Amino acid sequence: MFAAIASGNPLQLSTEVPNSGGLQHTIVLSSTKPKSYSHISLFILPNVTFPSEFAGTVYFKLSPTEEFKLFGYLSAEKPSAIFKVKLPNANMNSAADPGDGLGEIDMEDDTPGGGLPSSNISELIIGISIEPKDQAILKLQESKAKQTALQGSSSLVLARSGTNSIATPGQLARVYPLLTQQLAAKIVQHAYNYLTGFLDPQGNVSIKRFDTWWDKFKARLENDAQFLDEVTQD
């Protein structure tokens, strides 16, 4: 009934989940090639008549042991969707393009030493559940609202288990090395931009100015951490 294509790879058909009465389907994306960025196209097969009063909610997970996470839907009015998949160590500065899904599928790595995990995009499993359209749309709206409240954005993140246990700067740097570097650079640049306004003729600045910057920085970070995204070199 459904099919998916990971960019640069062959089409793969869905299979019915046993004992679901044809209401649940899965697609395991195997034989795929890891890339810095990739896209998955998911669609209803052309010879399938999909009832207009139903929708197929689309879920993703990275391995059979993890839980599915909701990302979008298919229907008679929207028979296809494109999801952007970001592999570990991808260029974080590239513009996000979530396509027709709820958001980007962010495949983060929690393996020691960083880099590509031992099992990559080939683990990606797509689950599709056919249910009444009104019910599906409500579920999607609730999921999107919940994610927005938790993350402060409309992107849904599909991350490997274990990333929620980050408790120290070192753990953060191991799981998200590139993002940690970018965060450090933003903080240093913010301090530089502030302190250069107080240089004396010899190019020095009082340590009290640094203390003032730090107090202001912590207060603003607590109120609106996203201001760091706007920090640029003068």
Rank of each mutant, 00 (worst) to 15 (best):
S41N: 15
L156N: 00
A55D: 08
Q189R: 09
D97T: 15
S161T: 08
V48R: 05
P34L: 12
N93S: 07
A167I: 10
A159W: 07
A96F: 11
E77W: 02
Y73D: 08
Y192F: 11
D215Y: 04
L74N: 13
P98C: 07
Q141R: 07
A3S: 11
D106F: 08
D134I: 01
T196A: 15
F60G: 00
K144I: 10
I126V: 14
E222N: 08
A90S: 08
P51T: 01
A173D: 08
P34V: 15
K218E: 09
R220Y: 01
S36E: 12
G72K: 10
I121G: 06
L62T: 14
L150M: 02
F217H: 11
D200F: 10
Y59E: 01
P112I: 09
N9G: 12
A95N: 03
T148V: 04
K61T: 04
L62S: 15
G72D: 12
S206A: 07
L29C: 06
N164R: 15
G99N: 02
E142N: 10
D211W: 06
I137W: 04
Y59Q: 02
I27H: 01
E77K: 13
R160D: 05
P177N: 09
K216T: 09
A219Y: 05
A225L: 12
F83S: 01
S153Y: 02
Q181A: 05
